[in-house]
Structures are given as structure tokens and as C-alpha cells.
Design a protein around this nucleic acid. Structure first.
Lengths: 134, 134
DNA sequence: AAATAATGATACCATACTGGTATCATTTGT
DNA sequence: ACAAATGATACCAGTATGGTATCATTATTT
């Protein structure tokens, strides 16, 4: 029943740090020193954030990462979907209707509505709101 | 990001069927015929529902399972927790504060509040409400 | 009493997912 | 040329998921 796996968690921590140092370019070395995340794992995570357009990377000496967009434009859901795929709480739940004869799976509808609720709430969280502390 | 794993799903289908046949005793054989779930897996699931007090089992010839409580008193969250443990969306998310210097992890608070929301919604779903179709 | 039909308890197992590690290639600054 | 950085990618161990298999126990029927 886990909403947030480790890589998403790490991604948020890292991107927060990078956002606060804006517009500086932050290297993996610095991130590893500041927030305690295994280096190779963090590298992979940052590469994902880069390929998903949330970070911009600079190769070569003095390189690293910086935020690609304004913090207000980075949604928590973006980060989650980058690592966890499209937002779906009930992937295969009640695909077939639960009571074949009647009430065409009211449960699925309920779960769907909960999913939309959760999405809406998560969508209200941006990197900007986190940095501001509310 | 899966809210409902397979065994919970199966459990709901099975208990729905049993509830509709109340107060009859339903055997695994009948359940397997009606709802397509692998027999040994279903047996394990029913044993759990039994030990968690949602079903009552009868051994021996002509035995099987029947609902232990009124459908209105069987909450979806009961079934979920029987298979998935205590309801927690953010198990280890942001245990350490995300921005060490400030704003003591507003994210954790947000996630917690979402968790309470989801729980409240799921709590409003009972076997009775499913049988009634809303 | 014996046979049979049901669940109880429990051990096992294959596969996928999670949380990483390791390695080599490429790019850039000095 | 060299060093310092990321890009791409393959690998890997541990755990969780979704089951299977087996034997013990209980109850009904004959």
C-alpha cells in the first residue's frame, strides 16, 4: 500500500536541494555530501529527472544539474510519475465486475473517485510550495 | 502505487458472494465454480478472513463458510488490513526532514492528511453498501 | 467404524519488483 | 592530454507477490 517508493523520495530531496541553490549548477558529489543517498543510485535518479525535463544537466568538468523550470511549475505528481508511471491506484482492481448480475461494480467507481481525490491533492503540491514550507 | 493487491481483491469478491447467499454456508468448491479464483489460493484467503473474524467456518462434510457479521458491519478497510496490514500510505516517506534547516517537512504533513482522507473514504465502504450497489 | 468431504495449518516455490552496484563511454574545462 | 563530470546500460541481491502442495483435523453419512 506504498504511495511513495524510495527513488521518488530521494528524487524529491535532491530536487529540493538543487532548487534552493538556484540558479547554481549542483554536482552529484555535492548532493551526496549534503543529503545521504548512495551515489550510483542518486546518479540514476538524477538522470531520470533530467530525461523527464525537470532538471538540466551539464557534462564535463564543473558540470552537474540545475532546475529546468520554476519551482512553482514542478509538481509532485510529475516526479512520482517519472518513477512510478501513470498515476493509478487500482491498476487491475475489479476489472471484471464484482457482482455479475447487478450493480455494475460500484466499488470500482468509488475507488476511481478516491484516486481522483488523491491526485488532486498531490497535484496541489509543487516544489515551490514545499520550498515555501506550506 | 497499488492500493489493492490481488488477495484483497479476491477476498472482496468471495465475501460478496458469501454475503449474498446468507445465511447459507458456502463451500470452497462452490466459490471456485462461481468466481474464477485458483482454489488453493482462495482457501488461504478464506482462512484469513475466518481468523480475522469476518467469516465463520464449518469443518467436515457439508462445511464451508458463512458471514460472521451483518454486511453493514464489514468495512472494506477491515478486509484490506487483514491482508495488507495497518493502513499506511507513507510508511517511510520523509522520515528525516527534507529541508534540514527549515519548514520541518511540510510534505509529510500533507501526505498524512491525504492518508486520512483516503482512509475516511474507504471506511465509508461496507459490504452492505456494495451489496446495495452504492 | 470406516469412508468421505470439508477446512486448518504450514511449508514451499517461481516470478517480478525494489533498491541498489558496476562499468564503460562521452563530454567539457584547464 | 588529463581530469572531472554526466550518459547509458548491464547486472545483482533481497523481498514481496501470487500462488501450489501436503498433511492434519473435524464432521457427516453409511
Amino acid at each position: 500500500m506504498k504511495l511513495i517508493p524510495r527513488n521518488t523520495d530521494y528524487a524529491v530531496r535532491a530536487i529540493c536541494y538543487i532548487a534552493k541553490k538556484r540558479p547554481a549548477v549542483v554536482s552529484v558529489a555535492e548532493l551526496v555530501k549534503k543529503i545521504k543517498i548512495p551515489r550510483p543510485f542518486l546518479r540514476k535518479i538524477l538522470q531520470t529527472l533530467n530525461s523527464e525535463g525537470m532538471l538540466i544537466s551539464y557534462k564535463g568538468k564543473g558540470g552537474g544539474f540545475r532546475l529546468a523550470r520554476k519551482p512553482e511549475a514542478v509538481y509532485l505528481t510529475d516526479i512520482m510519475e517519472a518513477f512510478q508511471g501513470p498515476f493509478k491506484l487500482n491498476e487491475c482492481f475489479f476489472k471484471r465486475k464484482i457482482c455479475p448480475d447487478r450493480n455494475k461494480c460500484c466499488l470500482k467507481k468509488k475507488i476511481d473517485s478516491i484516486e481522483r481525490m488523491v491526485y488532486r491533492e498531490l497535484r496541489s503540491i509543487t516544489l515551490g510550495s514545499v520550498l515555501r514550507g506550506h
